[in-house]
Design a protein around this nucleic acid. Structure first.
Length: 502
RNA sequence: GCCCCCAUCGUCUAGAGGCCUAGGACGCCACCCUUUCAAGGUGGAGAUCAGGGGUUCGAAUCCCCUUGGGGGCACCA
């Protein structure tokens, strides 16, 4: 690489951390790690109207959660900014944009523009009617000093426009190869500073990337067509250009750019549903990139050791939630007991608040259940439906569900009664899976029932569900008294229910 | 409308001229395991490599065209 590798993620706090931003951050992070470079976080908050502290916090928290630690970045929660190019918040860097703008103005590479919003809107409408691409007509490009003075006198606010000029801009994108774009396709002279004096994205990004010595700009493909503007600005400012790498977009199922309307895009939503960071990182890394081998379950460190731009895909990638869920299951199964208990706790607390459970299980109780639930969790959020029946006073019983498909209500009542007696005969001290199974199997054999049918009736009676962890582990977790109590209640429910076929 | 980018199973992808009668994974189907659900195992369906021209002894791989898709064209980022 040419000199030190310095890359950045530059989110704007105008919304919660987006899946696409997270992936761009991840690719930058992996690239930095792979090359022993520096990963920088910069907040692009110049859209004051849409930016908020809440979004900023969501973004920083999300990046933290993913494990993407930045080497340089803004001050956070009382902590000082980290890195030699502070501040890392654009609204705190206004002086440097003003200075850069002054420089461009002084060299006549930019000029004040007094056009009103109405004038610009009218231009755009006319262009559209004439089937021309929208562009600035250059009304203020060649104003003489007297004309400028007149407009200043009118009290018209002046935006600053950068002269785009003529010619072709070419660059060698690290993933796309050579890209050439004629400046005539850039929309005319570019506003770099608003009438109110605040700088615009295309300007600040260049000023900061230069100031922060960014070596590689790795970002989404949606910026590919904007890159010539940036290059022109780098040149006008007389600073070296970084290298560019444009990543394929993450797509909705209909192959349009992933959006909130059509997909779930906020990282916080995935966290809330119980996706684990390892799975999200693993999945996102493999969306648009591959190792070139058949490896696919990879940790952040393993990804960092393998990352290369050469294997970045050019075409967009549809976000496939099913594959994410599969990976999530893979990673949940790899977690240690302590780790899994810790990660399950917030979800159990949420279930408690939602009334799914009535009591918070302690760590030992959860630990005891781990062997039967760990491989049954597609997401952490499903823990409540898996073991919730253990932490409520009574489960809801549907008489129809109580009756196994090959049985009728009478047989079911009979079966549950007999099972209750058989289980009652097992003493408190012997209440273990190995002790519970033989008597029930013997009972089924004796009565000519399929063991599975009897087990299903018991399962629904004590859990209210047809899909549960293994029955005997379930009964042990439930305990003798509650098992017998729930069987009694199920029998009563069946007795009260009208004799309809279940 | 103009400019730019892209194009291998439904989806994510391997493939950098012969190893490809195209490999893996998710999903789907079947079977095995099994008290349900999972997990796991085995097998299967699924891509004339968008289409058409070239180049070459030989093309999914190189070139051109067509088609399709996407992105960008703000005093948003």
């Amino acid at each position: 690489m040419n000199g030190d590798v310095r890359v950045r993620i530059a989110p704007s706090p105008t919304g919660p951390l987006h899946i696409g931003t997270a992936r761009t951050a991840l690719f930058n992070y992996l690239f930095a790690r792979r090359h022993g470079g520096t990963f920088i976080l910069r907040l692009e908050d110049t859209d004051v109207a849409r930016s908020s502290i809440a979004y900023e916090k969501d973004i920083l928290d999300g990046l933290h959660w993913l494990g993407l630690r930045w080497d340089e970045g803004p001050e956070v929660a009382g902590q000082a900014a980290r890195g030699p190019y502070a501040p890392y918040r654009q609204m705190e860097r206004l002086a440097s944009y003003a200075e850069a703008a002054r420089q461009l103005l002084a060299e006549d590479k930019a000029y004040p523009c007094y056009c009103t919003a109405d004038e610009l809107a009218a231009d755009r409408a006319a262009q559209q009617a004439a089937h021309e691409p929208p562009h600035y007509v250059g009304r203020c490009a060649a104003l003489i000093p007297a004309e400028r003075a007149a407009r200043e006198l009118e009290g018209r606010p002046a935006a600053i426009r950068f002269r785009i000029g003529e010619g072709t801009v070419a660059f060698d994108d690290l993933v796309r190869g050579r890209v050439e774009i004629d400046t005539s396709a850039l929309g005319g002279d570019l506003v770099i500073v608003r009438g109110d004096g605040t700088p615009l994205y295309h300007f600040t990004v260049v000023v900061d990337d230069a100031a922060m010595r960014i070596s590689h700009v790795i970002r989404g493909e949606d910026h590919l067509s904007n890159t010539p503007k940036h290059i022109l600005l780098f040149r006008a400012l007389g600073v070296p250009e970084p290298l560019f790498a444009h990543l394929p977009l993450i797509l909705n199922p209909d192959r349009t750019k992933m959006s909130k309307r059509k997909s779930q895009t906020a990282i916080s939503d995935y966290i809330a549903q119980g996706f684990v960071r390892e799975a999200l990182v693993n999945y996102l890394a493999l969306l648009g990139w591959s190792t070139g081998t058949e490896e696919e379950i990879l940790s952040l460190d393993e990804l960092a050791a393998r990352f290369d731009v050469e294997h970045v895909q050019k075409g967009g990638a549809v976000f496939d939630r099913e594959r994410l869920e599969w990976l999530n299951g893979q990673w949940i199964r790899k977690l240690s007991a302590d780790e899994l208990i810790d990660r399950l706790r917030p979800f159990l607390e949420a279930d408690l608040h939602a009334g799914v459970i009535e009591r918070m299980p302690d760590d030992d109780e959860v630990c005891a259940l781990l062997p039967v639930i760990q491989e049954r969790l597609p997401t952490l959020g499903t823990v409540g439906e898996l073991i919730g029946f253990l932490f409520v006073e009574a489960v809801a019983l549907d008489p129809a569900m109580l009756v196994p498909k090959r049985w009728d209500p009478t047989t079911t009542r009979d079966g549950l009664g007999a099972a209750r007696d058989a289980l009652a005969a097992v003493g408190e001290v012997s209440w273990e899976a190995d002790e519970l199974e033989p008597p029930l199997r013997a009972l089924a054999l004796e009565r000519g029932w399929k063991a599975g049918d009897l087990f299903m009736a018991i399962r629904v009676a004590v859990t209210g569900r047809t899909a549960t962890p293994p029955l005997f582990d379930t009964l042990v977790a439930l305990g003798r008294d509650r098992t017998l109590g729930r069987l009694d209640r199920a029998i009563a429910v069946l007795a009260e229910a009208p004799e309809v076929v279940g």
